[in-house]
Simulated assay, not measured.
Amino acid sequence: MNFELSPEITAMCEAVTGFAQRDLTGPDSFEPIDFRRRWELAGKQGILGATVPTQYGGSGLDAVAAVALMEALGSGCADTGFAFSAAAHLFACLMPITEFGTEEQCRHWLPRLCSGELVAAHAITEAEAGSDIFNMSARAVRDGDHYVLNGTKVFTTNAPIADVFLVQAVTSPGSGFFGVTAFLIGAATPGLRVGPPYAKIGLRGSPTAEVHFADCRVPADCVLGGEGAGASVFTGSMKWERTCLFGIYLGAMRRVLDSTIVYAGERVQFGSPIGEFQAVSHRIVDMLARLESAALLLNKAAVELSRGGNCEVSAGLAKIAVSEAAVQIGLDAIQLRGALGVTAGDAETLLRDAVPSRIFSGTNEIQKNNVARALGLGRKRR
């Protein structure tokens, strides 16, 4: 496969890296006013709607270009949490609307979501329905031309600042895959309440919270993809998220690897730069090998997605490879810096931000289950 990018995409990525370095890096915490300021800038730059068709305000990029764009964003934006929020907004929310929304829904929501005027959040995970997603307890009952939603979602990215929620709820208990329905619900809808932001080990610049629904009445025309299509909407969102979002980590790893190489060339011990010692240089080579291997797997998945293929295996393998590489490169970068590695800096930040990547978008153990099932192995889905 040819992973060489066109001159136009290459120039776009260079511009995004410079823009992110200049305008998107913020505090290692969530501050609503500053988050909105940077969010609107990211929208004007075209990041928030990168893969959305141009007729709805996006840039119409394919998955290969999207991975390159996310890598550029991750490289330039030291606040990986903010970059993660932008990617979750685009791939877990806007792409499902693009693929499953009616023309009216697309025209109503997408232009303002692409421009940065609005923020989206995908609410699906529950306390007892994480990996076992079809065990969710949230219910939506039809009542005339409305649905009434009740339940609680947890670990919802962007919830504290979201203007619209893509929500999954059971409409037909016992029907499994076809018993779940997706809804587009405005944040101001009565009966919808967002809890306080979580304190997290990493991705602190990305606000995450619980979302509560108490007799929340939603018009029937807010259903996305039709009743019973919620699982398909979720599967579609994960296809994009598992493939494209992880480009952010490629960029973050490359940024930290570059700074580690510089450090190894400048730090002198026993009369020589530590990069001259094999124990150091070989570890850096291992870091590069992990990064490049993960990048190849991720780009392979992006090519398959761009071609409309079934990328379940390639996306699962790529998600595992990128997340595990990010954690190990974070550990290596800290180790090579010695005591400086455990103080505030890009190495310890990468490690903190990398740890959640093995969990979100489906844990790495679940990815292995998915790949094994695609190979005809493992337990069958009920």
Rank of each mutant, 00 (worst) to 15 (best):
G81W: 05
F82V: 07
F82A: 07
F84I: 05
S85C: 09
S85Y: 12
S85V: 08
A86F: 03
A86H: 00
A86I: 01
A87Q: 07
A88I: 12
A88S: 12
F91T: 15
F91P: 00
F91Y: 15
A92M: 15
C93A: 14
L94V: 00
M95V: 12
M95W: 09
P96L: 05
P96H: 06
I97L: 15
I97Q: 08
T98R: 08
T98I: 01
T98H: 10
E99W: 12
E99I: 00
T102R: 02
T102P: 02
T102Q: 05
T102M: 04
E103R: 09
E103N: 08
E104T: 10
Q105C: 04
Q105E: 10
Q105D: 06
Q105R: 02
C106N: 13
R107F: 07
R107N: 14
W109E: 01
W109M: 03
W109A: 06
W109Y: 15
W109S: 01
L110V: 04
L110S: 03
P111L: 05
P111D: 08
R112Q: 14
R112A: 13
G116V: 04
V119C: 11
A120K: 05
A120T: 04
A120V: 05
A121K: 08
H122R: 07
I124V: 14
T125R: 14
E126N: 04
E126H: 06
A127T: 14
A127G: 06
A127W: 08
A127I: 13
E128H: 13
A129R: 04
A129M: 07
S131G: 14
F134H: 13
F134P: 00
N135I: 00
N135Q: 13
M136S: 12
S137E: 13
S137C: 01
A138S: 15
A140N: 03
A140C: 09
V141H: 10
R142D: 02
D143I: 06
D145V: 12
D145H: 13
H146S: 13
Y147S: 08
Y147G: 05
Y147F: 15
V148M: 06
L149H: 07
N150A: 13
G151N: 09
G151M: 11
G151K: 07
K153N: 07
K153D: 07
V154T: 15
T156G: 04
T157V: 14
T157Q: 04
N158L: 05
P160Y: 08
I161W: 07
I161P: 02
I161K: 05
A162S: 11
V164W: 05
V164A: 11
F165I: 00
L166T: 06
L166C: 11
V167T: 14
V167A: 13
V167R: 03
Q168E: 14
Q168N: 13
A169M: 11
V170H: 00
T171N: 03
S172W: 00
S172N: 12
P173H: 02
P173D: 01
P173S: 01
G174F: 01
S175Y: 09
F177K: 08
F177E: 13
F178K: 10
G179D: 06
G179A: 02
V180Q: 12
T181P: 03
T181Y: 04
A182M: 02
F183H: 00
F183T: 00
F183R: 00
